Computed example of a mutant assay.
Amino acid sequence: MNELQSALEQEVYAVVGASNNKDKYGYKVFKFLENHNIKVYPINPNASQIEGTNCYGKLSELPEKIDVVVTVVPPQISKKIAEEAGALEIEYLWMQPGSEFENAELYCEKLGLKCIVNECIMVEMRG
């Protein structure tokens, strides 16, 4: 089984860049996962809630260990999230298209992360 398929079978996700703005992909990805009955935590230091769900400022504030971090943020923020995810021993980092940084796969591998790039989680889950 490849890493993409394995990541899709995980149970607890976090979306970094989750937003209350319905036009942003941070909102769309968060709601998509939520609507597919996946346990998902929104991460955004500038929001306290996303549609009634408590929002967290960073991964280390989450009440439980997560399996997959999905980033919907600029590449330089994804790189910082990779460092935090590696330190927290999170298994997967899924960077939505446009969120990936240069040499992300190699960088994540050094941090002990399995990395998915160039794939949209909403497309892959519909698969």
Rank of each mutant, 00 (worst) to 15 (best):
V12Y: 05
Y13A: 04
Y13N: 04
Y13K: 06
Y13D: 03
A14H: 02
V15L: 02
G17S: 07
G17E: 02
A18D: 00
A18L: 08
N20Q: 11
N20P: 01
N20H: 04
N21A: 14
N21M: 13
N21Q: 15
N21E: 15
N21K: 15
K22T: 15
K22S: 14
K22M: 14
D23T: 15
D23R: 15
D23I: 15
K24V: 11
K24Y: 14
K24T: 13
Y25H: 14
Y25T: 13
G26R: 09
G26F: 10
G26P: 07
G26W: 05
Y27N: 12
K28S: 12
V29T: 12
V29H: 03
V29P: 06
V29I: 14
F30N: 02
F30D: 04
F30A: 07
K31F: 11
F32Q: 14
L33V: 01
L33M: 05
L33R: 04
L33G: 00
E34Q: 12
E34W: 09
E34K: 12
E34Y: 13
E34M: 10
N35I: 09
N35D: 12
N35H: 14
H36S: 13
H36N: 14
N37C: 06
N37P: 07
N37V: 10
N37A: 10
I38S: 02
K39T: 10
K39Y: 08
K39H: 11
K39L: 11
K39A: 09
V40Q: 09
V40M: 04
Y41M: 05
Y41C: 03
Y41F: 12
I43D: 00
I43R: 01
N46V: 07
N46M: 04
A47P: 00
A47V: 05
A47K: 09
